[in-house]
Write a protein that binds this DNA or RNA. Structure first.
Lengths: 112, 112
DNA sequence: TTACCGATTATGTTTATCGTAATAAAGGAG
DNA sequence: CTCCTTTATTACGATAAACATAATCGGTAA
């Protein structure tokens, strides 16, 4: 393996950014997603996401209408937020599945 | 289809950015890649990349050591540049193939 | 009280993306 | 030879995303 840690970081930043965003949508489709939990989950898969990246992302996906946010109103301003995939988010995820399939077919299976 | 053009643009910017970068590496493995040609090729696949994005990207991949650049020295300063995948670039591409497979297995095939 | 844990929020710096305009060389039409 | 189009890259300014780190807040345990 010629790739060192700097290369891996570059791959992450340059290319894999979108991959774990898909993971988030995927998880949000299965059940509620929480920022910190997701950071830990992704860390397990080798992605090291800082809060300064994760939380603005979730807010953005919420603003785009792909994720819905629920928070206990009785709790304080920093209580955990649960994110769910919306109908629009499902559409986006389905579209992305098609894109993944295409990429997989072309690059991994080397067809077409 | 609920997704409108704004959504598609968001998907592109938020997630698919890495996908066509992989396409570039993939093409560079098959033969020389030229900026403008790549922009047209990607446009055919629905990705609309502006020169202000493409050329800095190629320069960056070159600087990372994934692409090698050849340019006819006799020609002027804006002569076309041909990019080839380096050994390190091959490593990166192979690593990415694994990542694509994993993503495909989990999200598309819904396994694991 | 104090200390820690689960979570989010705030913030400042760096880097990428995008659109558009400028530049350069080469080839063809007249 | 000059003008125009085509093939390419380069330059640039504005917006936005990513990152690391520090601050905050509420709950629970010692």
């Amino acid at each position: 393996m010629l790739l060192n840690k700097l290369d891996q970081k570059a791959i992450q930043r340059e290319i894999l950014l979108g991959f774990w965003k898909i993971h988030i949508l995927y998880h949000a489709a299965k059940g509620p997603v929480i920022g910190l939990e997701m950071m830990q989950e992704l860390a397990r898969h080798g992605y090291d996401i800082s809060p300064g990246t994760m939380y603005p992302l979730l807010a953005r996906l919420n603003k785009l209408g792909w994720l819905e946010c629920r928070q206990d109103k009785l709790a304080g301003p920093k209580a955990k937020k649960e994110y769910f995939l919306t109908a629009l988010g499902h559409e986006a995820l389905n579209f992305l599945k098609g894109q993944i399939e295409e990429l997989h077919r072309e690059v991994v299976l080397d067809r077409e």
